[in-house]
Design a protein around this nucleic acid. Structure first.
Lengths: 177, 177
DNA sequence: TGACGCATGTAATCCGTTACATGATTAT
DNA sequence: ATAATCATGTAACGGATTACATGCGTCA
């Protein structure tokens, strides 16, 4: 802790959630499955060991022992400060990695009609996700509050799915020109 | 090879490129750095062992030995068929994982003015990438040909960066309302 | 002859997924 | 009773990055 311990992105995600209010590993797992699914994902098998690391680094503390051996953790002051430092550090360049877009590169190996059908299927999929995101957005109160930033992140998802739907429709037409 | 050997996404990417024309590992590495950088990335340290696997599986063959010990590979018929089968198999659900969007969730821990500045920086970054993509698109001949699908994939990148630029500008304004 | 680019490989490590494993509490 | 859900953990494995390591060919 003398020279900042390296914390993974998952670590910061957990830490960030724990600055809001104390949670158990189980609750954190659910949060990843539901509200954070859009932007990051993690399984319990990765979460529990990571919590142990954060605790060892003094960034979180266990505040409570519940039934069934559940443990509730909260961020320490050092943990909260670590998240702020993380937010202020320019994020590393993210390199794109999309198997779906990679496949597009090789669609020329299929008959044009088949390639167009794959694009149309892709458009349908994105349209479905768009509907789902729009329904989720309906549930978020427009008033300022803790859900505000979540709504802003969701907006990126909405615009992304809308964009990809239009792109795939365009590509299907383009390939048959 | 009796029951199809499992090929990773990287393997299919290499295989797909090798169906077009024979290449060395070095050339493949460069292709990932340049023309495929948008959709997938790989380092030489991952590429060379993967080529060995593909060769062992009979999906590629070495066609030539060049200077400095370079080896040129080409896809076999079995390899070409494997790529087609891959393209026809519905791709697995891709889960979103963006550290940049994850950070947004926690921007509430910073003063609104600072959060807005982070969004504006993000917008600037996407605007830059958009310009870069547009310049790349200029270089691609509009005529039909092998670059056609590459142009379609690039179009997704162009629309993505434009969308994210607008989103980040919107978010910067939204957070200061 | 020295620097740079071509060219290929291996090793250590990290991150993430799947599968394995166990047990407590609550509702039917 | 027993099924579902809550709750936590470990192990095996695969994919990817970084660092280590080496050597040939060309050009200034």
């Amino acid at each position: 802790m003398t020279d900042s311990p390296t914390v993974s992105t998952l670590g910061y995600a957990l830490l960030g959630l724990l600055t809001r209010h104390p949670m158990t590993g189980y609750e954190l797992t659910q949060t990843f499955d539901i509200s954070l699914a859009n932007v990051w994902s993690a399984r319990h098998s990765q979460i529990y060991p990571e919590l142990a690391k954060l605790q060892a680094a003094g960034l979180i503390v266990q505040t409570e022992s519940g039934p069934r051996g559940s443990k509730r953790y909260a961020a320490t002051d050092a943990g909260t400060e670590a998240v702020r430092r993380w937010l202020r550090t320019p994020p590393p360049a993210e390199l794109m990695r999309s198997e779906r877009l990679l496949r597009v590169f090789f669609f020329g190996m299929l008959p044009p009609e088949e390639a167009a059908a794959l694009f149309r299927a892709e458009a349908a999929r994105h349209r479905e996700r768009l509907e789902h995101h729009l329904a989720t957005a309906e549930l978020i109160p427009p008033a300022p509050g803790p859900a505000r930033l979540g709504r802003i992140a969701l907006e990126a998802g909405i615009r992304f799915e809308r964009m990809m739907t239009e792109w795939a429709d365009w590509a299907a037409a383009e390939i048959q020109r």
